[in-house]
Amino acid sequence: MTDMSQTHHQSWRQWLTTDEPTSRRHAAIVQFYLGWLSFRSNILAMAGLIILLFLVFVWLFAPILATHDPLAQDLSLRLLPPSTEHYFGTDALGRDIYSRIVYGSGITLYIVTLVAVTAPVFGLLVGTVAGYLGGWVDTVLMRITDIFLAFPKLILALAFVSALGAGLENAVLALILTAWPPYTRIARAETLTIRNSEFIDAVRMQGAGTMHIIMRHIWPLCISSIIVRVTLDMAGVLLTAAGLGFLGLGAQPPTPEWGAMISFGRKFILDHWWVATMPGLAIFTVSLGFNLLGDGLRDLLDPKGSKS
């Protein structure tokens, strides 16, 4: 018997941590909150989250945070060391490096978001279809996936961009083309374990179509392993994107893309260290953020993998 008055006085915290949820949504919220609590206690993962939130913050408030026009050139100010006027110094064209890094955050977010949204969805679609249908569809799709997996990512991206022409859009396209295969593998493996469950049989007997079953009943169960993998992969995507930018195949000048900025500072590395060092630190920080967050999420969502 529950005391009614006590139930009414239950604090938010009790409502959020109850083990007797009153509805499906309540259960989901409780589970999310408990996950958040355990995530919050992981200092490194929180650090990762904060780094990424900071990146979004910098992107949102770039016009306020930047002290100079990121594209404005002034040759009389070229290659100045870091100072109170130019926090990170200036480059060979007299542009303020700090402001360029601030504006570059948008490009980084653009690349990462586009890849993180498209590649996993495509991989998820291919993997679940292959796993659910089985047979020759499975064989053909997985064979194609294996071919893409067999390629070293950077080399494949390089070949794609060199064929399509250098530029930010083509670089992103190349990154997506190299990023999807692992998600296919994961989604297929998950689907194989779910495919023959009774609840799928039940849905099928209710007359649900194949795509309905895949999208409404299999996808939700694959999501958590995919999310973990996406977060862990984004650091790699970021580094590959920076590599393409460094080779001059990504965003074209004068866009303040971090990888391209490093390549620009390369010639002056021995005498004017800040030109290449600063954008590199930015890349390092953000990709560390993704790695820390990904590690934390894996501990949280994938207890099997957390041992490693």
């Binding site: 580094l239 590599g243 390369r266 021995l270 290449a276 060092t277 890349i283 390092f284 990709s287």
Partner: peptide
């Protein structure tokens, strides 16, 4: 973790 997060070309420049 640091190794996973650093662009190899940048680390090369820093090393030089």
């Amino acid at each position: 973790l640091f190794g996973y997060s650093m662009p190899v070309f940048w680390l090369g420049l820093m090393g030089l």
